[in-house]
């Protein structure tokens, strides 16, 4: 089997979607000056909620909505803790990750009465659809065939975010909060409201990322199924310099690594070694990222408490 072919790119598209969605969420946080270590947990919450929504309503739209809302609720929790209660954002981020892991396993036991993973053959995953015009392009058109709608949503989002951040007044003010919150405050800009908005939206995107994980690729939930993708997304945000297109590129890179890693498993290399690939790549990429990858008045921040 060839290592690189169109089907690899096709699976890259599928696998980079959750990373991209979460990384765009990370972008929104970074742009209002929040270094969100909790992306991982938010995605996990989304993945679990999507399954719960799907199982109980058998309606995919409801399932995805539930995922978005729960991601948002937990993101608001993070916002409340850091903005209102001035808690350390890294500690809160870690706590969110842990809470997500604890809650999902706890609820897996209480709701579905299973340990480890939940799968029900009666559940439907997200439908596979083609994009009308793009899928007709020769050769690369196959990339836009039979993907979940979330893949296309994710692809469109960087453009939407770019327009929002750099063309609208609201986006301009959001950026100003991250650049210099004290200055924005002194102008009467409602910085806290903007931070809540950005974090809420970020949670929503993470919820979507989770839905793609649990309903798009497979139709199941397993404990800790995010497997560090939230952290990879955080690095994608940093590598992409918190710019929508930069993040798009960085996420694609990590999605590709994911896809290659999966591909390699089929050619009798121990899974442990192939699974390392995305993490090693991410770590190597860190050598090209300076600081937290966003311009602020407070650069040179140490990773201190």
């Amino acid at each position: 089997m060839e290592l690189f072919d169109l089907s690899l790119l096709h699976s890259t598209m599928r696998m980079f979607t959750p990373i991209l969605l979460a990384a765009l969420g990370g972008l929104l946080c970074a742009r209002v000056g929040v270094f969100n270590v909790g992306l991982e947990g938010l995605v996990l919450i989304g993945a679990f909620s999507a399954i719960v929504g799907n199982y109980f309503t058998d309606n995919l739209i409801v399932a995805v909505t539930v995922a978005m809302l729960s991601g948002m609720i937990f993101s608001f929790l993070l916002a409340f803790m850091t903005i209102q209660l001035k808690a350390n954002e890294i500690v809160v981020g870690i706590a969110i990750n842990f809470l997500a892991l604890g809650l999902t396993t706890f609820l897996l036991r209480t709701i579905f009465d299973v340990k480890g993973a939940f799968y029900d053959s009666s559940m439907r995953g997200l439908p596979r659809v083609d994009v009308p015009l793009l899928s007709d392009i020769p050769a690369v058109g196959v990339l836009f065939q039979s993907q979940t709608p979330l893949v296309y949503v994710a692809l469109a989002l960087p453009f939407v975010l770019y327009f929002f951040l750099y063309k609208t007044v609201a986006g301009f003010r959001l950026l100003s909060v991250g650049y210099n919150q004290a200055a924005a405050n002194s102008l009467g800009i409602r910085t806290n409201a903007i931070k809540y908005g950005a974090l809420g939206l970020s949670g929503l995107l993470c919820g979507l990322a989770g839905a793609q994980l649990s309903l798009g690729q497979v139709t199941m939930f397993s404990e800790g199924m995010t497997a560090g993708r939230g952290f990879v997304a955080l690095v994608a945000t940093m590598l992409g310099q918190s710019h929508p297109f930069g993040v798009l590129g960085a996420s694609f890179l990590f999605g590709l690594a994911d896809a290659i890693s999966t591909r390699l498993q089929s050619i009798s290399i121990p899974t442990q070694l192939t699974s390392m690939l995305p993490y090693i790549l991410t770590l190597l990429v860190m050598f090209f990222v300076r600081g937290r990858g966003v311009e602020t008045n407070y650069s040179n921040e140490q990773s201190s408490r």
Binding site: V169, Y179, A182, A183, L187
Partner: peptide, 25 residues
């Protein structure tokens, strides 16, 4: 000074009272 080093002079001056139409800056 309460300025945004990464923004332009004009952006720094109008921020908070940006000239806009339909939400576009």
């Amino acid at each position: 000074f309460m300025l945004f080093p990464h923004l332009t002079v004009a952006e720094n001056i109008v921020i908070g009272h940006e000239p806009s139409s339909a939400g576009l800056f």
